[in-house]
Amino acid sequence: MITAERKPLDEIIDYIKPFSRILLVGCNECVTVCAAGGRKEVGLLSSALQMAFMKEGKVLDVKELTLERQCDPEYVEELVPLIDQVDAVVSMACGCGVQEVAKRFKEKPVFPAVNTKFMGASERQGVWAERCQGCGDCVLGMTGGICPVARCSKRLLNGPCGGSSNGKCEINPEVDCAWQLIWDRLKSLGIEKTYEEIVPAKDWRTSRDGGPRKIIREDLA
């Protein structure tokens, strides 16, 4: 999933200070799962913003709506009946959702209420960790299902480096050394030989480094 964290309240208030009527839009997908921008968080933020305005002697009218998906134009259309009743939109979706709303309603200012963080997985209740950087040329088949691009601090393709100690990364004792994980996994699968293969310099064109990416499926488009 795409993970996110809510922005500090003061930053959101700074965005909407000039307005008195806002539409606060949540998303029922990734940001709901990581408890950053789902229906519940929309309710909480709405109350917090209204209280902050009241403390300043102002009134903030907040309309709340949580869409099934904000990154899909079909669902963004559901905002149409509300958009004329507000001065600005605050989106609690990831960056994709914010941009879809901004694209659809060109005349309205749209502000993000969360910081989009990474593509990750849930490690345990309340803990999410990065797993994929979307490099566009998956190497998991060679690395025992553990991604060195996303999980090695140096993105080494022929690791580990000298900073691996007792299975942990030198940047932080809380961070696993991806290459230790890869080695342990290859060993348990009985394919340690794979580790000896030298991985050539990666072709980064498939990653964001080749410019903004697009997928066109001729069979669906």
Binding site: K202, W204, R205, S207, D209, G210, G211
Partner: peptide
């Protein structure tokens, strides 16, 4: 980068 001779570089 895509216009040069190391198109796969980061």
């Amino acid at each position: 980068m895509s216009y040069g001779d190391h198109v796969d570089a980061k």
